[in-house]
Amino acid sequence: MSAVLHTWGQNLSQHVHLHCLVPGGALGDDGGWHGARSHYLFPVRALSRHFRGHLVSGLRQAATAGELHRVTRPGDVDDQLNALMVTEWVVYSKDCLEHTDTVVRYLARYTRRIAISNARILAVDDRQVTLRYKDYRDRDRRKQLVLDGEEFVRRFLLHVLPKGLMRVRHYGFLANRCRRRRLAQIRQALAVAEVTPDADSAASDPEPTYTCPHCQQPTLRVIGTLAPRRPTCGRPPNHREQRYRA
């Protein structure tokens, strides 16, 4: 599977969860592809309860080993874990056989975005920030939220990942060390040819590209040319600046 970490809610609260794209089958030891018997790889309710038990068991083992240093009150670990076990956990699973491209694009947006876009920030002054959000608990109604500047920064920084923590991880036959070999085996088992970019369509792209000075890849494109209103820094009046994007 491919898993994408998502940490924020619409109001910038800390809402840590994973979006996972899971294949509906597995590559067997015989080199063949074994598809799921239904649209779902696992029953949703069974998956929810298995995930709950697995995580609570891991927390209990960590507590026994003395690794939960912030929990100091006697009996607090058992009380919290027992409360977790009697709560129904939610694992939302849905097949995407007819909308695969849409789902992939949806997950791809999370690989680069963080917390909030500029379009949702309605107003900023010396003290407060006003933002727009969707209240999913109130029938997806759009509302406005006013936060003090310090509170806005605090919530935003909740979603800056620690150094070394990967936002996207690939597992199984999609893992980096075996992906190329395993995908070739799966395509052979399914009698599916590898899809390559259309050379004709790529050649017909009239937009010029420029090599990025940092990654040395041809990913820069001109999106506009800015002419200064007056000469600056000793530059001649006809000097023009170009803006790029990757």
Rank of each mutant, 00 (worst) to 15 (best):
V160T: 09
R137C: 06
H34F: 09
N82P: 05
Y210E: 05
P228S: 02
A26S: 14
Q10L: 02
F51T: 15
D126P: 01
V146E: 08
R177Q: 08
C178D: 11
Q61D: 15
G172Q: 02
G164Y: 14
R155H: 05
G35Q: 11
L190C: 06
T219P: 03
Q144Y: 05
L183C: 08
A3I: 11
V4E: 00
A62R: 15
S117L: 02
C212T: 02
L47H: 02
G32Q: 13
D30G: 07
E98M: 06
H19M: 12
R245Y: 09
R109W: 03
V16M: 13
R137A: 13
S57K: 15
Q128V: 11
A108F: 10
A227F: 08
L183D: 01
I114W: 05
L97H: 10
Q10F: 03
I223W: 09
S57Q: 15
R127V: 12
G35N: 08
T232P: 01
V146H: 05
Q216G: 07
A202C: 06
Y40F: 15
F152Q: 00
Q188E: 14
G31T: 07
V146D: 06
D140R: 10
L190H: 03
E207N: 11
D148P: 08
L183T: 04
S13P: 04
N118I: 06
Q217Y: 08
H17T: 01
C178Y: 04
R230P: 03
V160I: 13
S13D: 15
S38T: 15
S117W: 03
A246L: 09
S48H: 03
A191M: 06
E67N: 12
R109P: 01
R230S: 12
R230W: 08
S57V: 06
V4S: 01
P208E: 00
D200M: 07
S2P: 04
T64C: 03
V195T: 13
N176D: 13
V104L: 15
D138K: 11
R132Q: 12
N176H: 10
P218Y: 01
R52Y: 03
L220R: 12
R167K: 14
L41K: 02
Y210H: 14
D148E: 04
R167A: 04
R127M: 12
M166R: 12
P208I: 00
E98R: 13
L5I: 05
P43A: 12
V4F: 04
S38Y: 13
R187C: 13
L131T: 00
D78C: 10
H239A: 13
P213V: 00
E67H: 13
G31M: 02
F152E: 00
